[in-house]
Design a protein around this nucleic acid. Structure first.
Lengths: 227, 227
DNA sequence: TGGATCCGTTAGGAAGGCGTCAAGATCGGT
DNA sequence: ACCGATCTTGACGCCTTCCTAACGGATCCA
């Protein structure tokens, strides 16, 4: 599978140069020139890696890191012209994974990208099929089977929510993260969407939709898939 | 819990300087001056982080990385005097997580260490689970399980308090800090909030809520989580 | 001994979050 | 252009959570 990279820089020339290099190396490249565009692209496309320039016109670079980190663990490599040590430390402590000072050598960037992707890739994969007493979920096939073996039809949004919850089953998933990942960061507060779709999922999956056993609500915090 | 660092360098002076710095910053430091000693120490002590100089007398630095990586995913930060780009790329592709060229600034090293540990800590829930005799707390999943395995439901405020106490378990946490972090600096003096929520937490977690064993009050100062 | 201070406990009203339903808007395929 | 499926939006009632106040117990010191 190709690695999808989101490159964020306000300079179109640099953007173009990086895109050409990365594309030639087999990466799928998406670009953004502003912080807001970067956050939108991050939420919509779920890149496997983010290359982030700190000097953006609209938002502070660390603000972009903070926002991304509020719902995602995607590796972030900061590329910056600032040689100030404080910036470096600040970015790393905010949640960046690596920090390169411009000008940097392309082979080094590529090596650091490989290292970042290697780290993030391995621990994520768990079982692809999650079975409960009442139904089973095949994450790879994007399919849900009831106990009788009949297929349960889910709409795209229903599946998106269920997938996130099941991938982190047992863990509490904040409403912020669900909304950011599915509708985008701008919808962070539209919690009524979640209420509607969770009700639909429960009607389709739970033996007693009024008394949820698998799709648990943690009031004020988020939702949890309990198996 | 303190982070255990294995520092590998053939120069005793540098070793000593790094040890002093890291110990002062709260790390538990173990040192090795040769590749073989490093591998032995890595196998015996399972450090949380390795700082590795590439110029070792007995083994090539990349050989140490390869050997460690054959059985461990511990973060490795390479410290090297070689400015050659090829070395850097080679080390990263062999399995190193980061690469700093000497001379480097101490604050930057510390920031990169924090970033490396943060990354390695989150995916697996080894360090995020705190188990006691009566219950276990999963900080990443935001979940508390009683000894019987049943889930203990906590409200957002209860969880916020417990999380702060458990993250600094063993240490005294002042009432001011709890109030500032959860309700904001303006509520610094509303200590009755804490009394109410600590009582609720004890009722849910302590075997004998009237005689707290884990959530300890330090009269006039603050609270402490004792495991 | 008496007062002052700090803490634990309880309970009820206020506020906000959640489940539910249904209708309008939008999308996608024929 | 039509129709079904899907998504959005608003409203309502219920339930959880939070805040607040009051009271009693413990400790310390004058």
């Amino acid at each position: 599978m190709t690695t999808r990279v989101l490159v964020v820089d306000d300079d179109a020339h640099i953007l173009r140069a990086i895109r050409i290099h990365l594309t030639a190396c087999g990466y799928a490249v998406r670009t953004a020139q502003t912080g807001r565009a970067a956050l939108r692209a991050g939420a919509e496309e779920h890149p496997d890696l983010v290359l982030l320039d700190l000097g953006l016109p609209d938002l502070d670079g660390t603000a972009v890191i903070t926002e991304l980190r509020s719902w995602s663990t995607v590796p972030i490599i900061v590329l910056s012209a600032r040689t100030d040590g404080a910036d470096k430390i600040n970015a790393l402590d905010t949640g960046a994974d690596d920090y390169l000072t411009k000008p940097f050598s392309m082979p080094e960037l590529l090596a650091r990208m490989r290292a970042a992707v290697r780290r993030s890739g391995s621990p994520t994969d768990r079982d692809t099929v999650v079975a409960t007493r009442d139904f089973s979920i095949d994450l790879a096939a994007k399919r849900v089977l009831s106990r009788a073996g009949t297929q349960v039809h889910l709409t795209p949004t229903e599946w998106a929510i269920l997938e996130i919850l099941v991938r982190d089953r047992g863990a509490l998933v904040s409403q912020r993260r669900l909304l950011s990942e599915i509708w985008g960061p701008a919808y962070r507060t539209e919690t009524n969407y979640l209420r509607v779709y969770l009700a639909q999922l429960r009607r389709k999956l739970e033996p007693e939709p009024a008394r949820p056993r698998y799709l648990i609500t943690e009031s004020g915090m988020g939702y949890r898939f309990q198996d």
